[in-house]
Design a protein around this nucleic acid. Sequence first.
RNA 1: GGUUCGGUAGCUCAGCUGGAUAGAGCAACAGCCUUCUAAGCUGUGGGUCGAGCGUUCGAAUCGCUCCCGAAUCACCA
Length: 597
Amino acid sequence: MNIEENLQQVVIKAVSELYGKAAVDSMVQVQKTKKEFEGDLTIVVFPLLKLSAKKPEDTASEIGEYIIKNWEHAKKFNVVKGFLNITLKSSVITELLLKINSQENFGITPITEKSKKILLEFSSPNTNKPLHLGHLRNNFLGDSISRILKAGGNNVIKVNLVNDRGIHICKSMLAWQKWGNGETPETSGLKGDHLIGKYYVLFDQHYKEEIKNLIAQGLTEEQAKQQAPSIIEAHQMLQKWESGDKETVALWKKMNNWVYDGFDVTYKLMGISFDKIYHESETYLEGKSYVLDALNKGICKKAEDGSVFVDLTEDGLDQKILLRSDGTTVYMTQDLGTAAMRYREFGFDQHIYVVGNEQDYHFKALKLVLKKMGFSWSDAIKHFSYGMVELPNGKMKSREGTVVDADDLIAEMTETARKTSEELGKLNEMSKEQQDVTVSTIAMAALKYFILKVDPRKTILFNPAESIDFNGNTGPFVLYTYARIRSIFRKLEEKQIRRVTLSPDYEQFSTSEAELVKRINDFPGIIAEACNLCSPAQIANYVYDLCKLYNQFYHDCQIVGEENDQAREFRIILSDNTSKVIAKCLNMLGINVLEKM
RNA sequence: GGUUCGGUAGCUCAGCUGGAUAGAGCAACAGCCUUCUAAGCUGUGGGUCGAGCGUUCGAAUCGCUCCCGAAUCACCA
């Protein structure tokens, strides 16, 4: 039982003894005392007034008296209106500090037999274009969630489903065949994914031109889109690919490999890896058998034109096509098959998809269809839906080249980090290698934090004209705070201060100092709390609060180095806890820590 | 039109299982580098929490109705 619950029971007992009435758990709210008031824990007495039949102040005072007499952890209390503020004995905090210091992984739940097995799908890129800012959000969220779930004691399996087939990749292939002159990543000096992306854009330009010409010749836009020579060729190529044409498949393989090489570089920069990578080309046929089976059972129906659909109208959705009239599979069919395949393989307790909110409908339908088909694990399907990243002039479109490219952005951030670091003289006395690591860590921290700190559900508006900040509520600020804390410990060693006092004694400090100390002590529970959160944004904002607090605190704090100067030593101990918490939280977010900055 | 999700300071965002005076950063202004690191700290100004009604001792938070924005309702993925 934690201390809050413990206090709650004491209050219930107090009400029963003082007023002879039984209070319910929900009537006794114990919360952390707001920082502008004295105390550690606060009880809101308003709900208890009905039982006491007295004024709020009187009720609070009486309960306060009772707590001091009957609860070992309470030191004193004060009453502000209907709020009863309890100050804890310092020994309680000492115990907590000792516990944190003695446990290497305080707050982190280890993986055991009972751990939930969670399959987490994220990233899932297409192979016809390089990654852009929208993909970064997906990757950062996915990676961060995997770490948070792991910290919560779950057995997490990270998977990536690469969309490596379809008309889009044929477009790039076709454009490359026509206008590429055998260009390769080596000859062009371009990263593989960027090279392919270039031809994807090129295809679209020609295609658009053809449509324009056809419309000028009197066709409707609809007709023009279907009859343009480029698109007809692309469809022919897709059919060739599906029938296993050797040349086409060889070209497809070659070009996809270029893309994978390019992606690998970007994943490495981001510090992201997967336990298993699926390719749609290997999974897309799997779902078809389930659909046909369901058709036999009458769960699915066949339309007049031969297409197969499932009726979801009674669940508030529409009729959903599962097989085209020509018998080929659609997105939903593939996802059905992939999910079933994964369940066979892993037997997950939960399957989370990190996918944009534009697919909310799809996942709602996926879950329903699985249920209708009788899969017992359909409830294990969860869609972690996040908002889009938009530019001032609207959505990003790869085809039209209106994207913020992931590699470019990372390079830009790294350049800014280097310039700023040099100006501040932070890179002096560092080897070239150290400099590179430092600069790239700071750049990625800025980028990751920038994305992760906002509520995943919200649309992010990114203005490329305004560069991502390195000051204020940012990744570099958090890193900076952590590095400073570590630096204090280095200094401690230098000055050979060994004896340290674990117990904070509030009496030693002026009120404002004691307040700061108390605030900082509130935070070690953050890790335990963080593990139960599934939103990196909440952790990011938590950890920012902590760092802010620390920085305020540190400005009054000095290392003097006198052996018997207990007050200063005490402050230093707080810092160590702070640094542990920050490091763990940063790790959950997927941000590397720096000892020096 | 149906469904889902958003609307909090000039800008970017926290806060939302109901609690005390709604908080940060950026931008503006005024201070602070002899201590461990100024990517920092302190202070000032800045708000009808989209609007209204309701529930409650108490509403940014819960409910209903409107207004605005986004996504989706494909034989695309």
